[in-house]
Nucleic acid binder design. Structure first.
Lengths: 213, 213
DNA sequence: CAAAACGAGAACAAGTAAAGAACTATTTTT
DNA sequence: AAAAATAGTTCTTTACTTGTTCTCGTTTTG
């Protein structure tokens, strides 16, 4: 990866080395010791940097240990395209949870369609944004963040169950999710019902006759 | 680049050599050592010259190292380094010739948006295809070929001077170029007036607030 | 010969890294 | 159920890296 500091790269290379240094995801303490560091606190900061590049799975106290993402593994098998690959998460259809793919897939997205922040790709199902040129079957590039400015197009999770792609308008006592489709209604919610999961930064469409999935 | 000094060119050539001298962006110190210089201060001045020519990405302490720009990479080889990069040719605006960029640029386009045949990228200017979700400022991926089936969206060169992106309908005695915009007229030509330059296979759009170029 | 380009090195600013302590959440042991 | 152990997180202090700027000779170039 390009945007890593020296030590971050060292950690990544250590984890990617062949044969793997650990048979299981190592705890921060173990990894630090194996790399000759005496403090897991310092290592934690390096790991956070790799996490921002989506090279390491988010840490979780319930399943301890640092795990590389598929993206990092692809990088290790010296596939340079993996460097600017984004996770293709699954499909978003208004009114349903995001439908994740069983297997992790990646798309190599041009720099022009993404930001410096972590991004991922969803496939759009439905016509809620047709009037802004986002059609059924398009892919959208989403910057992962939990806040947005009014007028931005967001992935919003409503009532912790329904995901949808809409224009957002936030006011102190209500949140509006506005479709770009005259056939559809603007939805109004209490702020507590709506959780922003990301903001639209790019869009792609294939016109090839036989495009799978 | 011609307005580079001797040493500036040396540095550029060193970085462009095959195989690449570094697997990651080298710090000034490392690069200086690798080139047999003892001072990064001197190297820094050379780098500044290359930076002024936009051959090197601006340095940043947070992501240390010297990185070449796409421009430098394109300059160094006839083909771009990434296998899935496509040539970004320029802009297409209905009724004018394709406006080519001065310098060669490339975009890394996902496999899903291209075909196995040679493809290139154009930026769309104008609203002739809005009703099919292709907006002003979008990029389109074009498969380079000189024939099309009726109903396909093509880059057509009319009277050897005007390039345009339209839906094509071809009949023995006339060719129709149909816009996807109720405000615009379908144009009718004699087959000899219309030359197909490629067929639309993909489309991309950026929603980032500050997209340059 | 004069101007520009270059190399080495010193000094500086801003950010990264290491260590260790303190804290939180979770699991295991007693 | 309480206590202890484990593992991730946060913070502070100190040391180190890295890019930046300058100066002073030396080399190259027109």
């Amino acid at each position: 990866m390009q945007n890593l500091t020296r030590k971050q790269r060292d950690v990544l290379e250590f984890l990617l080395q062949e044969p793997p240094p650990f048979a299981y995801p190592p705890a921060l303490e173990e990894l630090a010791a194996a790399m000759g560091m005496k403090s897991r606190g310092s290592l934690h900061r390096l790991i956070q940097g790799l996490l921002a590049e989506q090279l390491i799975e988010p840490l979780d106290r319930r399943h301890p240990g640092v795990r590389l993402t598929d993206k990092a593994l692809a990088l290790g098998r010296n596939k340079p395209e993996a460097a600017n690959a984004l996770r293709y998460v699954g499909k978003i259809a208004a009114g349903r949870p995001i439908e994740a793919l069983e297997d992790q897939r990646y798309m190599t997205v041009p720099d022009e369609l993404k930001t410096n922040q972590p991004c991922y790709v969803l496939k759009v199902q439905g016509d809620s944004m047709v009037e802004l040129g986002i059609l059924d079957g398009d892919w959208v590039v989403i910057e992962q963040r939990c806040h947005a400015r009014n007028g931005e197009i967001v992935v919003a999770l409503v009532n912790k169950s329904e995901a949808t792609l809409k224009i957002i308008e936030q006011y102190p006592h209500e949140v509006l999710l506005v479709p770009a489709n005259a056939q559809m209604e603007t939805m109004r919610y209490h702020p507590s019902q709506v959780e922003i999961q990301g903001v639209l930064v790019g869009q792609m469409r294939s016109y090839r006759p036989l495009t799978l999935k």
